[in-house]
Write a protein that binds this DNA or RNA. Structure first.
Length: 854
DNA sequence: GTAGGGTTAG
């Protein structure tokens, strides 16, 4: 509404707005008519006006001829202006209305109410909700009584702007004014309460209605759908049909959308069959709803057939198909539709561009993304937040962080999605520092912001920081969802922090967080990595749906504790249940065989990959077999296997072989391997370290020195051993021989005590594990400071009596630490659990669960 | 007159 002037005259006819098309020739004829016969026939020509310019022309004509003072003509002109729905036309309508009120001060109240209603409706339809409600208030102040048309119009404005209280006040007023039985008013109230989330209130109004029509039912169905109560919405539809009320197109669209949200294609089909049989007109909107439903339910073929068979492929239908392809990760297909649209279809709008930009982002197609950006700018679509945000996302996903930042900086209306998109962009580019800075700088954060930042930290291995951030999130009163918990579970798993893992699991239960397949798999994997296969299997058994990833996590949980037989049983059960195995599950199950020494079974599975499951083994699977044979001491077989591989063996293959040579102290074969490796380009640090270790074990210090020099020349650095231990939710990390750790004096003292007690029990350090050319005393000292020993000592001091000491080691533990842990478990009567980079070792009463086979 | 379709970030 404008309150600038009361003058109600149109602009001179020459001042044609650039946005308006030139008046058609038929209008010129009207202009040239000299005199109208009577006011009514003159206003009749208003009906055929198609655009604002034509109305303005007639307005000018009426003014010139003095007809503007005629209340009937003025009323029709105001209504016509309001129906155009542009801000300019609404301004004219309002000015006209002011003039009307002035001229009919003592006059016709029914016409005034009629005009109030028209303007309230027009403003509501044009999303000028405040103006709409203010007009209603103005109407009351001016002493006009709202009628049964006023309430639906103003309630609609309240619903669309989610003004629950105002709507409830209108409810009272409507009852007071005697509209408690009016079906239009009551339908509007059902809709209003449903829109504002007060579904019980909507149901109450609905239940108390003396009579209900199809709109009443449809309004309630929509209310349920809005609250994501899609099942209830569909039930209500069938209830309606049983009551003998025939649905119309609007009802069908609402219920089909509910089926889409449920992803229930059978239900969608039932509704769709109902539409076909009931003889309803299947208009554009119904077709679109059906296409959307089938796409959402994964019945892409059905959707595509409907689309192909539709003669009226309007803009929304194209957009529906494209956005659904994008959601399904089929960016290329979305772009195919876009090409068809450019050739045959309507002009793309901003929603179309959103799908195209998202597609180019998914494909990392920077060129297409740039073209889209240019199109957006050429067509003035850049002011829509969603478009700006998707452009940021597109540049970020294409690795153009600077361009993403530039678009972000230039955005005048940054929303939380803009910040989150940029944040996710930093994550993808591995710029954790910038991401954290941006996160701390954000004016507001929502669940997605927290989830993004936590996921970034997990992705880049900052597990403790991720857990810390999760705690901050809770302190800010934000409730986590299943996306958060997937990251948290993953962090716990990598940290091997069992107490934290248990707490995480309880958190999911306590807060009723929906445990979908992804979260189920993450929790199962978490327990597996924390060495608690029982809890892992408990989660696995409660999972309703299990895909190959879930089965892999379960098999992995078994593999890491050396339970090869159960891992194999799970694998066979998976195949029995028609879950198609992939490459990952094969490497997991082969690893399980390797840790349990199941050579025959492992070879059988490896051979079945190609024959039975049509999967060509990857180099990783060959590595598993080398490991399987090597660990079992079948070194000659392992070397033959390597020689007969269809591809060039890589570092991992030689690593597995050399590792086996080291376990079985076979220096001869290691030498042979060394010769082959030196001829190839395999210079991986792991291999060189293993080689130097093998030579060192055999006391060949000259060879050790050669390898070390070679490593130095190549800039290779041995990864430092480190062990961590969780205590009261905090993860403490120890590195070999590091004096600067907190509580290190006490830990060193404890370690000394342990060594004395162990010596008394007959423990002799295995000096072969010290791979440096130093004297025996020094070797003994170095060996005593291995990180897992420090962690065990710290664990014994800090944790309660009888509690297991759980340590996570980043490398494979050495045989001396293994013997040490066995003795500690006996002498101190404590369970010691160590996860090294291979598997779990559970030490109890002097022996280990791996039976010294690892 | 009241009720309906496509919309970005984890």
């Amino acid at each position: 509404m404008s309150s600038t002037t009361l003058v109600f005259s149109p602009p001179p006819l020459t001042a044609v707005s650039a946005a308006d098309p030139p008046p058609p020739t038929t209008r010129i004829q009207i202009q040239s008519q000299p005199v109208f016969d009577n006011p009514n026939s003159k206003s009749g020509s208003l009906k055929s006006c198609q655009n604002l310019q034509e109305i303005k022309q007639l307005h000018a004509q009426f003014t010139k001829q003095g007809l503007i003072c005629n209340p009937s003509i003025l009323t029709k002109l105001i209504v016509k202006y309001s129906q155009m729905g542009t801000s300019e036309s609404l301004e004219y309508a309002e000015k006209g209305f002011k003039m009307f009120k002035k001229k009919t001060e003592s006059g016709n109240s029914s016409s005034t109410i009629y005009l109030y209603n028209s303007l309230i409706r027009a403003n509501s339809l044009s999303a000028c909700f405040n103006e709409s409600i203010l007009l209603y208030i103005d109407m009351l102040i001016e002493g006009f009584k709202p009628d049964n048309y006023t309430f639906p119009f103003v309630l609609s404005a309240c619903s669309k702007s989610l003004r629950l209280c105002e709507g409830a006040q209108l409810h009272c007023s409507a009852v007071k004014l005697g509209f408690h039985n009016d079906v239009f008013v009551l339908n509007s109230l059902v809709h209003h309460y449903g829109e504002c989330g007060e579904i019980d209130k909507a149901k109450q109004v609905f239940d108390e209605m003396p009579e209900r029509n199809v709109v009443s039912w449809t309004s309630l169905i929509c209310g349920y759908a809005r609250q994501d109560l899609h099942k209830e919405a569909v039930s209500l539809f069938f209830e309606m049909v049983e009551e003998g009320i025939s649905p119309n197109e609007v009802t069908m669209v609402s219920v089909i959308s509910a089926c889409a949200k449920l992803g229930d294609v059978d239900l969608g089909d039932r509704v769709s069959i109902y539409v076909e049989r009931s003889g309803l007109t299947i208009n554009d909107v119904v077709v679109n709803a059906l296409v959307d439903m089938y796409m959402n339910c994964g019945a892409v073929d059905k959707a595509k057939r409907l689309f192909d068979g539709s003669f009226a492929r309007n803009l929304v239908l194209y957009n529906t198909l494209m956005s659904n392809y994008v959601k399904l990760g089929e960016a290329k297909k979305a772009l195919d539709i876009f090409r068809e649209m450019l050739n045959l279809g309507p002009k793309p709008d901003r929603v179309t561009m959103l799908s195209v930009i998202t597609s180019s982002a998914e494909l990392g197609d920077f060129c297409l993304g740039m073209q889209c950006h240019a199109y957006v700018l050429r067509n003035g679509l850049e002011n829509w937040d969603n478009i700006g945000n998707s452009i940021i996302d597109m540049y970020a996903k294409s690795g153009k962080q600077d361009l993403a930042c530039r678009v972000f900086d230039q955005m005048s209306n940054k929303t939380i999605v803009s910040w989150n998109s940029l944040l996710a962009g930093f994550a993808r580019n591995g710029d954790v520092g910038s991401a954290r800075e941006l996160f701390d700088e954000m004016p507001e954060r929502n669940l997605v912001s927290w989830n993004t930042m936590i996921a970034i930290l997990v992705q880049w291995s900052f597990f403790s920081d991720a857990i810390e951030l999760f705690h901050s999130m809770q302190n800010e009163g934000i409730t986590a969802d299943n996306v958060t918990m997937v990251s948290v579970a993953s962090a716990c798993g990598y940290l091997g922090a069992l107490d934290l893992a248990k707490w995480t699991y309880n958190y999911v239960e306590k807060y009723g967080i929906e445990c979908n397949m992804r979260l189920g798999t993450a929790l199962l994997d978490m327990f597996g990595r924390c060495g608690d296969p029982k809890s892992a299997m408990k989660v696995f058994k409660t999972m309703k749906e299990k895909d190959v990833s879930a089965w892999t996590a379960a098999i992995g949980a078994m593999a890491s504790v050396g339970n090869g037989k159960q891992a194999l049983e799970l694998f066979h059960e998976m195949v029995k249940q028609w879950v198609i195995p992939d490459e990952v599950v094969f490497s997991t199950v082969l690893t399980a065989c390797s840790h349990a020494g199941l050579v025959k079974e492992g070879m059988h599975i490896f051979n079945s990959m190609k024959k039975q499951h049509k999967i060509t083994p990857h180099i990783v699977h060959y590595g598993c077999i080398v490991d399987l044979l090597g660990r079992a001491g079948l070194l000659d077989e392992a070397l033959d296997f390597i020689k007969n591989m269809p591809m060039e063996p890589n570092g991992a293959i030689w690593g597995a072989f050399l590792s086996a040579c080291r376990i079985h102290k076979n220096e001869k074969l290691a030498n042979l391997a060394d010769e082959i490796i030196s001829k190839s380009n395999n210079d991986k640090t792991g291999i060189q370290v293993l080689l130097s270790n093998i030579y060192a074990s055999a006391g060949k210090w000259n060879d050790v020195a050669k390898v070390r020099i070679h490593m130095k020349e190549k800039g290779m650095k041995k990864i430092a051993g480190s062990s961590s231990i969780e205590l009261n939710g905090v993860v403490h990390e120890f590195t070999s021989g590091n004096e600067s750790q907190p509580g290190s004096d006490l830990t060193a003292l404890m370690l000394h005590e342990i060594n004395c007690r162990l010596s008394a029990e007959g423990y002799v350090p295995d000096l072969e594990n010290v791979l440096l050319d130093v004297d025996e005393k020094e070797k003994e000292f170095l060996l005593s400071r291995h990180s897992e020993k420090l962690a065990i000592a710290f664990g014994l001091i800090s944790s309660g009596r009888g509690m297991p000491v759980r340590v996570v080691k980043n490398l494979r533990m050495c045989s001396d630490c293994h013997s040490f842990a066995k003795m500690v478990s006996k002498v101190y009567n404590r369970e010691i659990v160590i996860r090294d980079n291979n598997r779990f070792h559970f030490f109890q009463r002097g022996s280990c669960s791996c039976c010294d086979y690892w």
